[in-house]
């Protein structure tokens, strides 16, 4: 009896996993296809750029500065053991441009804007606003999802660039300002070691993360009513938002590894 129950449960979970994965895939295909549909309007994209991008700048400046400062601090103590303090500039710059910049920017944007996007779309689903759009023959993918998706893809590389620059400056403050690393060595090392391939890797990652976080967060909200644990009510929205944040954060880390492995 227990065995049968376990098999049933396993089968049910497998089917549900396949169904939700397929649904997410189709959601992305429909959203991407809607970009090329008729009557595309740019103003909603600008509004989303403001929401996802401009309103995230402060948090990006703050986390970027402190990440760079920590890198400067830890990097200095590690490099000093080998008498290589002069490499601090390249260590900070490479860590930020290739890895930490895109990943931490994506995680910050997920926390600030991704959760809000999921909750917004989820509440619209709960209160039948998405049904209302469909009944008005307004494509909810084009109207709701596409502006967010485009804004996410456009904004993440820019925020990552801000994060990198501020982070390098943070590392400079700690390394050069606090510990007296030679300023010329700091920048010369960075200039010599950072090549276009590093910037390209950071750019590709931030583009992929931008797409990934908007896709997962909006999709979870859009299909809130089909959640296995029941997505209705305030509790359903909060649970789905948490799921979206966890899933998109984990996905960012998984894809970070995959892209690094492919591009290294």
């Amino acid at each position: 009896m227990i065995m049968r129950h376990l098999v049933e449960k396993l089968g049910y979970e497998t089917l549900w996993f396949l169904e939700s994965t397929g649904r997410m895939g189709l959601f992305l295909v429909r959203a991407l296809a809607s970009i090329f549909g008729k009557s595309f309007k740019f103003f909603p994209v600008v509004r989303q750029i403001h929401f996802i991008g401009a309103r995230s700048v402060f948090v990006i400046l703050f986390t970027g500065a402190f990440t760079g400062m920590v890198l400067g601090l830890q990097g200095y103590y590690t490099l000093r053991k080998f008498g290589s303090e002069g490499f601090l500039g390249s260590a900070v710059a490479l860590s930020l441009i290739r890895e930490l910049g895109p990943v931490l920017t994506a995680l910050m944007v997920i926390g600030r804007a991704g959760s809000a996007m999921c909750a917004e779309v989820g509440i619209m689903r709960n209160s039948e606003q998405i049904d209302a759009l469909e009944c008005m023959a307004v494509d909810p993918y084009r109207y709701l999802i596409v502006p967010k998706l485009l804004a996410g893809i456009m904004v993440l590389p820019l925020l990552t660039a801000i994060f990198d620059v501020v982070g390098i400056f943070g590392g400079y403050l700690v390394g050069v300002g606090l510990y007296g690393v030679n300023e010329g060595a700091f920048f010369q090392g960075m200039y010599a070691s950072v090549v276009w391939a590093d910037v390209e890797m950071g750019l590709v990652k931030s583009l992929v993360f931008g797409l990934l976080l908007v896709w997962i967060c909006t999709c979870k909200g859009f299909f809130l009513h089909l959640e296995q644990t029941g997505g209705f009510g305030a509790e359903g929205v909060s649970r789905t938002t948490t799921d979206a944040v966890v899933l998109s954060s984990v996905s960012v880390l998984v894809w970070d590894y995959l892209i690094s492995a492919l591009m290294i």
Binding site: S127, E128, Q129, D131, A132, E134, C135, A137
Partner: peptide, 16 residues
């Protein structure tokens, strides 16, 4: 087909 529809939902479903 939906261009000929109008719907009043249970809670009006206005865009808040």
């Amino acid at each position: 087909v939906r261009r000929d529809f109008g719907v009043l939902f249970q809670n009006a479903a206005l865009f808040d």
